[in-house]
Simulated scan of single mutants.
Amino acid sequence: MLKLGKTQNCKILREKDFGVFVGNEGEEGILLPIRQVPKGKGVGDEISVFVYKDSKDRLIATTRKPYIEVGEVAKLRVSDVNNIGAFMDIGLEKDILLPHREMRYALKKDMEVEVYLYIDKTERLAATMYTKKREDAKHISQEEVNTSRYEKCGEQIEHILEEKFDGHIPYTDKTVDPEQVKKDFGVSKAAFKRAIGKLLKENKIKITKTAIFKIYKEDE
């Protein structure tokens, strides 16, 4: 059985229109949504996935790498705060709850705090700020977290550039207004510039004096 909160190797067991089920031989498997299935992968192929729970409390797999796994400590950003606690961005589609009882002090949106990721009594992923009690925890450096953030931001920018703007925007990372970047891509101008630099280095885009274009295979 695949472990909750961990990245692990497994196999694609069977395919459906909406995704594939992954796990070990003889298991029912866990859903990996179709958008997460790497191109060219099919039944019997090995794949690396992280397992968490979706909004309906069902186990689900992703090929995205989170900033932190169960048993690890890292400094993460607060996505939101409400009456049950703070929600921490771990780099996946769903944030992880940091209950009020696990806070060392009051938190606000966009604060960055050190947390430990664990599985609570309800078998859900949860975070705590009481990290010093976890002497055996693996500490993820801020550099590792930032590198992962830049990679995810680059993927997000590339996807939106293709899906929303048909591979072309009439401005560059040097000429665009910060408010326009936030409106179009949902990130800060600084994050946009880093992502554009990464995509340019990977030869996934080209930049003119007035625009940015996605490079497709036929353009290379």
Results as ranks from 00 to 15, higher is better:
Leu4His: 10
Gly5Ile: 08
Lys6Met: 13
Asn9Phe: 11
Asp17Pro: 02
Val20Ala: 12
Phe21Pro: 04
Val22Met: 08
Glu27Arg: 02
Glu28Asp: 14
Ile34Glu: 11
Asp45Gln: 10
Ser48Met: 12
Lys53Glu: 12
Asp54Ser: 07
Ile60Tyr: 04
Lys65Ala: 00
Arg77Tyr: 13
Arg77Ala: 15
Val81Tyr: 00
Asn82Asp: 15
Asn83Phe: 08
Gly91Phe: 00
Glu93Val: 12
Asp95Ile: 09
Leu98Phe: 06
Arg101Met: 03
Leu107Tyr: 10
Leu107Arg: 12
Leu107Lys: 07
Lys108Asn: 11
Lys108Cys: 03
Asp110Ile: 07
Val115Thr: 11
Lys121Leu: 12
Thr122Gln: 09
Arg124Pro: 00
Leu125Asn: 01
Thr128Asn: 10
Thr131His: 03
Arg134Pro: 07
Glu135Asp: 07
Ala137Arg: 02
His139Tyr: 11
Glu144Tyr: 05
Ser148Ile: 11
Arg149Asn: 04
Cys153Lys: 05
Glu155Ala: 13
Ile157Phe: 03
Glu158Cys: 08
His159Pro: 00
Phe165Gln: 00
His168Arg: 09
Pro170His: 11
Lys174Val: 07
Val176Asp: 01
Val176Gly: 02
Pro178Met: 07
Val181Ile: 15
Lys183Pro: 01
Lys183Glu: 15
Phe185Asp: 01
Lys189Pro: 01
Lys189Trp: 04
Ala190Gln: 08
Ala190Trp: 03
Phe192Ala: 03
Ile196Asn: 02
Leu200Ala: 13
Glu202Cys: 07
Ile205Asn: 00
Thr208Ile: 13
Thr208Asn: 09
Phe213Thr: 09
Ile215Cys: 04
Tyr216Phe: 13
Tyr216Cys: 02
Lys217Val: 05
